[in-house]
Protein backbone atom coordinates (compact mmCIF):
# COMPACT_ATOMS: atom_id res chain seq x y z
CA UNK A 1 0.00 0.00 0.00
CA UNK A 2 1.66 3.16 -1.21
CA UNK A 3 -0.38 5.78 0.57
CA UNK A 4 0.37 6.54 4.13
CA UNK A 5 -3.07 7.87 4.97
CA UNK A 6 -6.27 5.87 4.98
CA UNK A 7 -9.93 6.74 5.25
CA UNK A 8 -11.61 4.09 7.40
CA UNK A 9 -14.97 2.53 6.74
CA UNK A 10 -17.05 1.49 9.79
CA UNK A 11 -16.75 -2.20 8.91
CA UNK A 12 -12.97 -2.13 9.42
CA UNK A 13 -13.41 -0.95 12.99
CA UNK A 14 -15.97 -3.63 13.72
CA UNK A 15 -13.70 -6.21 12.14
CA UNK A 16 -10.88 -5.13 14.41
CA UNK A 17 -13.22 -5.59 17.37
CA UNK A 18 -14.15 -9.08 16.15
CA UNK A 19 -10.50 -10.07 15.71
CA UNK A 20 -9.62 -8.97 19.24
CA UNK A 21 -12.62 -10.13 21.22
CA UNK A 22 -14.26 -13.10 19.52
CA UNK A 23 -12.17 -16.27 19.75
CA UNK A 24 -14.18 -18.15 17.15
CA UNK A 25 -13.74 -15.37 14.58
CA UNK A 26 -10.04 -15.14 15.36
CA UNK A 27 -9.62 -18.89 15.01
CA UNK A 28 -11.25 -18.87 11.57
CA UNK A 29 -9.32 -15.82 10.32
CA UNK A 30 -5.95 -16.12 12.02
CA UNK A 31 -3.76 -14.85 9.19
CA UNK A 32 -6.16 -12.08 8.33
CA UNK A 33 -6.60 -10.90 11.92
CA UNK A 34 -2.84 -10.88 12.53
CA UNK A 35 -2.42 -8.78 9.38
CA UNK A 36 -5.21 -6.38 10.39
CA UNK A 37 -3.59 -5.99 13.82
CA UNK A 38 -0.31 -5.17 12.15
CA UNK A 39 -1.98 -2.72 9.77
CA UNK A 40 -3.49 -0.80 12.69
CA UNK A 41 -0.26 -0.92 14.72
CA UNK A 42 1.82 0.50 11.87
CA UNK A 43 -0.71 3.09 10.76
CA UNK A 44 -1.79 4.66 14.02
CA UNK A 45 -1.61 8.39 13.45
CA UNK A 46 -2.37 8.07 9.72
CA UNK A 47 -5.95 6.87 10.01
CA UNK A 48 -8.84 9.14 9.08
CA UNK A 49 -12.58 8.97 9.26
CA UNK A 50 -15.38 11.17 8.02
CA UNK A 51 -17.67 12.76 10.57
CA UNK A 52 -20.50 10.66 9.09
CA UNK A 53 -18.64 7.41 9.69
CA UNK A 54 -17.98 8.57 13.23
CA UNK A 55 -21.71 9.12 13.74
CA UNK A 56 -22.53 5.82 12.11
CA UNK A 57 -20.24 4.06 14.57
CA UNK A 58 -21.85 5.92 17.43
CA UNK A 59 -25.32 4.80 16.31
CA UNK A 60 -24.07 1.23 16.13
CA UNK A 61 -22.88 1.54 19.72
CA UNK A 62 -26.35 2.80 20.69
CA UNK A 63 -27.94 -0.20 18.92
CA UNK A 64 -25.68 -2.59 20.79
CA UNK A 65 -26.32 -0.95 24.16
CA UNK A 66 -30.05 -1.23 23.59
CA UNK A 67 -29.73 -4.87 22.52
CA UNK A 68 -27.65 -5.70 25.60
CA UNK A 69 -29.59 -7.24 28.52
CA UNK A 70 -28.23 -4.67 31.00
CA UNK A 71 -27.02 -1.09 30.60
CA UNK A 72 -23.27 -0.38 30.92
CA UNK A 73 -22.65 0.10 34.63
CA UNK A 74 -20.76 3.35 34.15
CA UNK A 75 -23.67 4.94 32.30
CA UNK A 76 -24.81 6.48 35.62
CA UNK A 77 -27.10 9.38 34.93
CA UNK A 78 -25.50 10.38 31.65
CA UNK A 79 -27.68 10.51 28.58
CA UNK A 80 -27.23 7.69 26.09
CA UNK A 81 -26.09 10.17 23.46
CA UNK A 82 -23.57 11.81 25.78
CA UNK A 83 -22.29 8.39 26.88
CA UNK A 84 -21.87 6.98 23.36
CA UNK A 85 -20.47 10.27 22.15
CA UNK A 86 -17.71 9.95 24.79
CA UNK A 87 -17.15 6.32 23.79
CA UNK A 88 -16.74 7.37 20.17
CA UNK A 89 -14.35 10.10 21.18
CA UNK A 90 -12.32 7.49 23.05
CA UNK A 91 -12.10 5.48 19.82
CA UNK A 92 -10.74 8.38 17.83
CA UNK A 93 -8.36 9.36 20.66
CA UNK A 94 -6.99 5.87 21.28
CA UNK A 95 -6.52 5.07 17.59
CA UNK A 96 -5.45 8.67 16.87
CA UNK A 97 -7.98 8.98 14.08
CA UNK A 98 -8.31 12.36 12.33
CA UNK A 99 -11.91 13.32 11.62
CA UNK A 100 -12.70 15.11 8.38
CA UNK A 101 -15.89 17.11 8.25
CA UNK A 102 -18.54 17.09 5.57
CA UNK A 103 -19.33 20.65 4.53
CA UNK A 104 -21.87 21.75 1.95
CA UNK A 105 -19.12 21.78 -0.69
CA UNK A 106 -18.85 17.99 -0.31
CA UNK A 107 -22.61 17.61 -0.39
CA UNK A 108 -22.81 19.69 -3.60
CA UNK A 109 -20.30 17.36 -5.25
CA UNK A 110 -22.34 14.38 -4.08
CA UNK A 111 -25.42 15.87 -5.79
CA UNK A 112 -23.44 16.20 -9.00
CA UNK A 113 -22.24 12.63 -8.74
CA UNK A 114 -25.80 11.44 -8.18
CA UNK A 115 -26.86 13.38 -11.23
CA UNK A 116 -24.11 11.79 -13.29
CA UNK A 117 -25.19 8.37 -12.08
CA UNK A 118 -28.76 9.20 -13.12
CA UNK A 119 -27.58 10.03 -16.61
CA UNK A 120 -25.44 6.92 -16.85
CA UNK A 121 -28.22 4.55 -15.85
CA UNK A 122 -31.22 4.60 -18.16
CA UNK A 123 -33.39 2.07 -16.38
CA UNK A 124 -35.43 3.74 -13.64
CA UNK A 125 -35.50 0.79 -11.26
CA UNK A 126 -31.82 0.10 -11.73
CA UNK A 127 -31.06 3.75 -11.07
CA UNK A 128 -33.01 3.72 -7.84
CA UNK A 129 -31.28 0.54 -6.74
CA UNK A 130 -27.80 1.94 -7.42
CA UNK A 131 -28.45 5.17 -5.58
CA UNK A 132 -29.88 3.32 -2.61
CA UNK A 133 -26.87 0.99 -2.53
CA UNK A 134 -24.45 3.90 -2.53
CA UNK A 135 -26.43 5.87 0.06
CA UNK A 136 -24.21 7.67 2.54
CA UNK A 137 -21.11 6.01 1.09
CA UNK A 138 -21.21 8.57 -1.69
CA UNK A 139 -19.94 11.12 0.85
CA UNK A 140 -16.94 8.89 1.64
CA UNK A 141 -16.26 8.67 -2.10
CA UNK A 142 -16.23 12.45 -2.50
CA UNK A 143 -13.87 12.76 0.48
CA UNK A 144 -11.42 10.30 -1.07
CA UNK A 145 -11.45 12.43 -4.22
CA UNK A 146 -11.02 15.74 -2.40
CA UNK A 147 -8.29 14.57 -0.02
CA UNK A 148 -6.60 12.08 -2.35
CA UNK A 149 -6.68 9.30 0.22
CA UNK A 150 -8.01 5.80 -0.33
CA UNK A 151 -11.04 4.42 1.50
CA UNK A 152 -10.24 1.15 3.16
CA UNK A 153 -13.27 -1.11 3.33
CA UNK A 154 -14.67 -4.65 3.52
CA UNK A 155 -17.74 -3.67 1.50
CA UNK A 156 -17.67 -5.54 -1.80
CA UNK A 157 -21.15 -4.37 -2.75
CA UNK A 158 -20.01 -0.77 -2.71
CA UNK A 159 -17.17 -1.54 -5.10
CA UNK A 160 -19.35 -3.66 -7.37
CA UNK A 161 -21.93 -0.89 -7.54
CA UNK A 162 -19.38 1.79 -8.38
CA UNK A 163 -17.58 -0.25 -11.01
CA UNK A 164 -20.85 -1.32 -12.65
CA UNK A 165 -21.75 2.28 -13.55
CA UNK A 166 -21.33 2.61 -17.31
CA UNK A 167 -19.40 5.87 -17.39
CA UNK A 168 -16.96 4.72 -14.73
CA UNK A 169 -13.59 3.34 -15.76
CA UNK A 170 -11.40 1.56 -13.30
CA UNK A 171 -8.19 -0.32 -12.76
CA UNK A 172 -7.77 -2.99 -10.14
CA UNK A 173 -4.42 -4.01 -8.66
CA UNK A 174 -3.86 -6.75 -6.20
CA UNK A 175 -1.63 -5.78 -3.35
CA UNK A 176 -0.17 -7.35 -0.27
CA UNK A 177 0.93 -5.24 2.65
CA UNK A 178 1.29 -6.02 6.35
CA UNK A 179 0.26 -9.53 5.28
CA UNK A 180 -3.15 -8.21 4.20
CA UNK A 181 -4.57 -9.41 0.89
CA UNK A 182 -6.10 -6.38 -0.78
CA UNK A 183 -7.56 -5.21 -4.06
CA UNK A 184 -6.98 -1.56 -4.90
CA UNK A 185 -9.54 0.03 -7.24
CA UNK A 186 -8.69 3.27 -8.97
CA UNK A 187 -12.00 4.52 -10.31
CA UNK A 188 -12.57 7.49 -12.65
CA UNK A 189 -15.96 8.99 -13.29
CA UNK A 190 -16.96 11.89 -15.50
CA UNK A 191 -19.16 14.47 -13.81
CA UNK A 192 -20.02 17.23 -16.27
CA UNK A 193 -16.57 18.45 -17.28
CA UNK A 194 -14.84 17.23 -14.18
CA UNK A 195 -13.33 13.83 -13.54
CA UNK A 196 -13.91 12.27 -10.17
CA UNK A 197 -11.04 10.07 -9.11
CA UNK A 198 -11.47 7.73 -6.21
CA UNK A 199 -9.38 4.96 -4.74
CA UNK A 200 -10.90 2.16 -2.71
CA UNK A 201 -8.95 -0.59 -1.03
CA UNK A 202 -10.98 -3.72 -0.51
CA UNK A 203 -9.50 -5.97 2.14
CA UNK A 204 -10.07 -9.68 1.82
CA UNK A 205 -10.29 -12.12 4.71
CA UNK A 206 -9.62 -15.02 2.32
Amino acid sequence: MRNNKYLLDTNIIIDYYMCLNISDYKERHRNYCAALGRFVMFNIGSLMMTDLTEREFMLKLIDKIIESPTPPNDLDNKSLVEYTNNLTKELTDNLQITIINTYSEILNKAYKLNLAINQAIKDKEERKKTRRKLGRDIINIIHTHQNKIPLITRDETLINTLTSIKTASYRMDQERAYGLQTERYNINMKINNETLETTLILIKTQ
Partner: peptide, 16 residues
Protein backbone atom coordinates in the same frame (compact mmCIF):
# COMPACT_ATOMS: atom_id res chain seq x y z
CA UNK B 1 -3.87 1.81 23.35
CA UNK B 2 -5.97 0.67 20.42
CA UNK B 3 -6.86 -2.79 21.64
CA UNK B 4 -7.60 -1.78 25.23
CA UNK B 5 -10.42 0.36 23.82
CA UNK B 6 -11.96 -2.70 22.21
CA UNK B 7 -11.49 -4.67 25.43
CA UNK B 8 -13.48 -1.92 27.12
CA UNK B 9 -16.29 -2.09 24.55
CA UNK B 10 -16.61 -5.81 25.18
CA UNK B 11 -16.49 -5.34 28.94
CA UNK B 12 -19.32 -2.81 29.04
CA UNK B 13 -21.50 -5.24 27.07
CA UNK B 14 -21.11 -4.12 23.45
CA UNK B 15 -21.37 -7.28 21.33
CA UNK B 16 -20.69 -6.87 17.64
Amino acid sequence: RACSYFAKLYDIGIRF
